[in-house]
Design a protein around this nucleic acid. Structure first.
Lengths: 340, 340
DNA sequence: TCGTACCAATGAAACGATTCAAACTCGAGC
DNA sequence: GCTCGAGTTTGAATCGTTTCATTGGTACGA
């Protein structure tokens, strides 16, 4: 008796055929008002809820989209996720969220899970390189859009931000404000984004004959990782301190900032200019408001869903790679004397 | 030809019956090694992936758990979500995440969606009061655990943090450090957490005859909302400034801090002591490291999943309400002269 | 009165898995 | 040679939808 009502129960209760109930649910126009009322009344009385498993079994696909991100705790992804959810809702789909935590094993688990769920398609910011596993998805015809990763257009659609341009923007800004001994904090460099931002920075530094760029590899991209790099810098002493630091993301930058300012030995931006990447909400409320590179996260999430919708609808596999250009946000940490 | 292989295709390819393939998948012990090898080979060659819709249609329930939070962007929930995902993975389940954004309509949509998906159970931090919608879930036998909200044990299991105790802790700390003109920032007070924290603070203030507590209602719980309350305080002038401010969460506190420090008129903690709630990562890296109330978010997420598992497994509806006690974290913003 | 057209409603078939009673195989034991 | 039982394998029935060819009914024009 505790079993949830099925469409058959509804049909009996309303004295109609099961097909009619289905039509009320899916093609209300095909049903007369009188019948519709009776059926809706029965649905209400029995507390009927459509079983999506049965529906998608028949339909052959679900109304869900799989989204696998590298770290839900990272505000960059949080923002992308939210935009994707909203955009998906407009398409009448729901987003199944997976967090790989930069772990290839967890990523693989989610890919398998989502395949079993027969998701309409997959949005993924892959761990490391595009693996055979993703190629397999493509072969199986699971529409897939890479997020925050440029891809070979012959294989996948993708949305990304031009990290090289962002890195260039950041380093160029430090150079423009007179800094010459630059440092780049980020890691591991096996992460493409980190590598690209570094490359862009190097490109900018090469434009100035007297400028140098030192690479300080961090263990991950967290506040804590940044703090330990910062501590290392503090121990080096003043003469070995860079005069401009570009961090691969804001969390790192905030960590570095903590270390440098907690000692009360160094001032930002007087002794060291600091710029991050992502422009998270907290950049503006840091000890010294943090300059940063803003990524169009909402556009990223929204566009990813749109590209996926394109793939789902069209049969022929034409892929698009959409690249967004990031934006420099100047705050106090790179020398603007007035705040905000 | 592009259709994904079904269990029947595998059976044909391996020259066995469909039941045997199913047994290989679900009860490997029942199948002889020879047959198992043949079937596994066929699975591999055809790239067979189990269709979860069909499986759950037959089984009557899925291996997913619905989780609806008020705001994925809020680090408190991000942390709970992550802990819940990990705990669910241990139980062999996956988490479907929904973000209600404090909107009852979106919440309702997700509840409906998850019901259609026949989730094993639901974890929810409800918008406002426990609505009839939730009671309906209970009647329909969908195991439900309320998160971050105390519930009548007769009706639901729940995990929560004692917000009254947290509010008391915060206010008591301000009083203990000599503050007497306290202010509470938070809103809307229709949110239970906000109301409880306020109530706890009032309880502490009543213990000191000469202490007062002013309530400053904010528009939401964001950095921006905090900033506008802070701006209002700045305009009031020094003589009307409270000497201790307790914010209903860290985001608000960071916002208030921005306003107060940006003007360079007031010093924290000398002129005003400030304490937040949640102890988010960024509390420690604020302009002035922020004292806060730490909530055991990992325990919350993990326990929620465990309570849900209890509900799913046992038939008789015995509910439990687990309450965690928060913890005071003292930093510079309330007067500890040494940092960290 | 009949034929035609149209609209509603019907209900069997199909989707892809799991389940389970029944059938089969193969030795051991008598 | 026959029986018994354990170990395997079989395949029809089932879950709850959607789909679609078919049927029933009504109205209108010829």
């Amino acid at each position: 008796m505790n079993r949830t009502a099925s469409i058959k129960d509804v049909a009996n209760h309303a004295s109609v055929a099961v097909g009619t109930v289905s039509n009320v649910l899916n093609y209300p126009d095909r049903v007369s008002q009188r019948t519709k009322d009776r059926v809706l009344k029965a649905i209400d009385e029995l507390g009927f809820v459509r079983n999506d498993a049965a529906r998608q079994l028949r339909a052959g696909h679900s109304r869900t989209i799989g989204l696998i991100v590298l770290d839900v705790g990272n505000p960059f992804f949080t923002s992308v996720v939210r935009a994707a959810e909203d955009a998906a809702a407009l398409h009448g789909s729901a987003v199944l969220l997976g967090d790989s935590g930069h772990d290839a094993g967890r990523e693989a688990n989610y890919i398998d899970l989502f395949q079993e769920q027969r998701v309409q398609g997959l949005l993924i910011s892959p761990v490391g390189d595009v693996t055979e596993r993703l190629d397999l998805l493509r072969e199986r015809g699971v529409p897939t859009v890479l997020v925050d990763r440029l891809a070979d257009e012959a294989k996948f659609s993708s949305v990304a931000v031009d990290d090289d341009a962002g890195g260039y923007l950041a380093a160029r800004h430090l150079l423009d404000t007179g800094r010459r001994r630059l440092a780049f904090v980020g890691g591991p460099t096996s992460i493409r984004q980190v590598a690209d931002r570094l490359q862009g920075a190097q490109r900018a530094v090469k434009e100035e004959a007297d400028a140098t760029l030192e690479v300080l590899e961090s263990e991950g991209q967290t506040v804590l990782a940044g703090r330990s790099v910062g501590n290392m810098l503090v121990e080096r002493g003043r003469e070995n301190l860079p005069d401009g630091i570009f961090c691969a993301n804001d969390l790192l930058a905030l960590g570095v900032m903590q270390s440098l300012t907690m000692t009360h030995t160094y001032r930002i931006p007087e002794d060291v200019a600091l710029i991050g990447y992502d422009d998270i909400d907290f950049a503006v409320s840091a000890v010294v408001p943090l300059s940063s590179i803003r990524q169009p996260t909402e556009a990223l999430g929204r566009t990813a869903i749109e590209l996926l919708a394109e793939e789902v609808e069209s049969q022929n596999p034409t892929h698009r790679a959409v690249v967004f250009t990031p934006e420099l946000v100047v705050r106090q940490s790179t020398g603007a004397s007035s705040a905000v």
